[in-house]
């Protein structure tokens, strides 16, 4: 564990709490892509099939939290606050993402086993899981400030993981190409968002696309 990785994980936790706060406070999931949240649930379930493998208490508790919270968010969006979800805004085709990631995982993996291919699939899928949300944002052209805080925390978590990998490369000679490439793509997807967040939200303005 190092500073960057711990901070990254905490930003990831924070992003989920901000999302839960947004839904509970406004009693609405408007502006949130159900498809992105569904993809995250798939990511956590397929990645943490090794839940029973002991790495550390931290590792196990975080895995349980990520699986449980992602499913709880699906429950909030699909059942509790269903009326506030507008599917006509959430039109990104996730079938292509799922198919492409599965295909890539079958071809580019470390070991061709069931658990390992699904782990790889989850890494690729996480890289693109934010696309339906960003697509929704670009369609509506604006977002509630708290929703942008959620996206910022999520993007910061990914950016900090890049720093963690650089750190681990120099201190432990840790190399993980699959995670690096997927992580770099994932972080790059946030660049436009970061720019507008910095220009508008941090200066007290509403998040609106130019």
């Amino acid at each position: 564990m190092n500073f960057f990785r711990l901070t990254a994980d905490l930003m990831h936790l924070l992003s989920i709490f901000v999302l839960l706060l947004k839904i509970q406070k406004t009693r609405s999931c408007s502006g949130i892509s159900f498809k992105t949240q569904l993809l995250y649930a798939v990511v956590f379930v397929t990645r943490y099939l090794d839940l029973l493998k002991w790495i550390s208490l931290y590792n196990t508790l975080m895995k349980i939290f990520f699986i449980a919270s992602s499913i709880y968010i699906l429950y909030l969006m699909k059942i509790k606050f269903r009326a506030t979800y507008d599917p006509s805004q959430d039109t990104f085709r996730i079938e292509f993402l799922l198919g492409a990631c599965l295909l890539l995982a079958l071809v580019f993996n470390y070991t061709f086993t069931f658990i390992e291919v699904l782990w790889t699939f989850s890494i690729y899928l996480e890289a693109v899981a934010i696309l339906p949300q960003l697509f929704m944002l670009s369609r509506t052209g604006e977002a509630e400030t708290i929703t942008t805080h959620y996206l910022f925390a999520l993007g910061a978590y990914r950016g900090l993981y890049l720093l963690n990998w650089i750190w681990r490369f120099y201190t432990e000679h840790h190399i993980d190409w699959i995670v690096w490439v997927a992580g770099a793509i994932q972080t790059a997807l946030y660049s436009d968002f970061f720019y507008i967040y910095y220009k508008k939200v941090l200066h007290g303005q509403k998040f609106e696309l130019p």
């Binding site: 990785r5 975080m62 990520f66 470390y110 070991t111 782990w119």
Partner: peptide
Amino acid sequence: KDKTKDHDEL
């Protein structure tokens, strides 16, 4: 090194 043994990141 076998990468499959050290998926220690979340």
